[in-house]
Amino acid sequence: MVPLGIIFMYSFGENVSLVEVKTTWTFDNYKRIFEPELMTLLWRTLWISILATAICIVVAFPVALVIATASPSSKAWLLLLIMLPFWTNLLIRTYSLLNILGTRGRLNELLGWIWLRTNDFLTFVGAGDLGLLGAKFVPIKFLGTPGGVVLGIVYVSLPFAILPIYSALERMDTSYLEASMDLGAGQLQTFFRILVPLAMPGILTAFIITFIPALGQFLTPELLGRGQVDMIANVIQRQFKGANDWPFGSALSLMLLYVTFILLALRAFGDAARSKREANL
């Protein structure tokens, strides 16, 4: 059990990391977080993470639904299909997006092709002279823009979002759905008023499991943001590898840690409230 004790000490290392260099118990490092420049950065980190998480969940839900309702034999294969990219290295996946999202990358190639075909079609129906789509295809800039970073985060964390929703849907009692249909609800009504609420615990887990890593995402903004869409992790990294301002970097990463704990506490709280509610029913 001795190594265990050492490891415990290591995990305590997180908590005492601020006491590094010189412990003066100053709050200056924390004050610096609230300077306007950093506030814009924190705000950007927040909205990029929220947007990416929201997209992940919206995409993950139907995907999880398809897997959960597939025949038992194909279920395992579909699950494997989704999980395989998740086992691939994060860095490699981000790097692979560079090729796709570049100005001359595959996605712009595809969009250019679609633009060309649409234009041909418009000419064919006699609307080509109107120049509805502009005179020339302008490649969309993904790299170095927030959009590219959001797309990158969605790409790397999609499997994380699918899994918890899948397991929630898998466990669900389908008789509720049948009951809803029998009582005259339509497909859509059943979907939104029965299926989605029943899958809510899974969706919340998916949110937490996607949102927390998204907040601390370093590689995606670094590689896809081209230094123009920095998030908090990039600043932390710079404090350690460039600026050598370790206490400030520690303060920033502790901020990130606090947010994580608050989110986890909120969820534990929500879980407790839910089980209480269910016990009362």
Partner: peptide, 12 residues
């Protein structure tokens, strides 16, 4: 916890 916190704390 986010990976970056882990990395930073271990480095420290």
């Amino acid at each position: 916890i986010p990976e970056i916190c882990m990395g930073v704390s271990l480095a420290l």
